[in-house]
Amino acid sequence: MSNGKIISQEPIIELKHIDKHFGSLHVLKDINLTVHKGEVVVIIGPSGSGKSTLCRTINRLETIDSGEIVIDGSVMPKEGKKLAELRSQIGMVFQSFNLFAHKTILDNVTIAPRDVLKKSKREAEEEAMQLLKRVGVDSQAGKVPAQLSGGQQQRVAIARSLAMHPKAILFDEPTSALDPEMIGEVLDVMTELARDGMTMVIVTHEMNFARRVADRVIFMDGGSILEEAAPEEFFAAPKTQRARDFLNSLGDRESRS
């Protein structure tokens, strides 16, 4: 494995034979994926290949047609209390931040611990302030999301996820909606999380970042996982033609811009 990191063999997320359609579109085709504790898995692939859908099925924001999702040994049910409980164990960071627009930054971080984990206001706020400090936005605690920059909002979103002490966090293109000068501050926070041993599944187009933090790279196209390899291996010598084309197209884009 890369980074000289030792990854346990304890599975946190297991996807078994996942199939999903959007109408007639077969968007996920027999997906099998296991993410171990402390592992950072980066999913890359062309637009429309099903990366977001895969990410969203993990905590059942999307339903599946068939297959099984197992979170830390528990099969994810279709609905009910158990589903909510398992969802609370998996954090999710969205491309568009999705901070609660009517709540202050502090309340954004405390609402779930108070509502779901039944923490006291004081306890939740103390921890929230620590988390906000960790992501560098503690000075903004009293503001509402609209008053923050995109980079700050996304860091708050990460703190909001962390407040639930998740077993893993899913990131769906967390920097795609950001101005270029703000991408770094969010990737820094994520790099730090990876270093601290957080289990992470990250959909991203930031290849340098992927190279740096990934323990494993997944390449998706047309709803299937086509390749799965350590980053140095994948980026140096992709096995499939489609992955080569994809990496070339990215190279073109970067050299053009």
Binding site: R87, G91, F94, R160
Partner: peptide, 11 residues
Amino acid sequence: GQTEAAVSLGM
């Protein structure tokens, strides 16, 4: 997205 964020926090 507001609902999705809340749901994914376990609410």
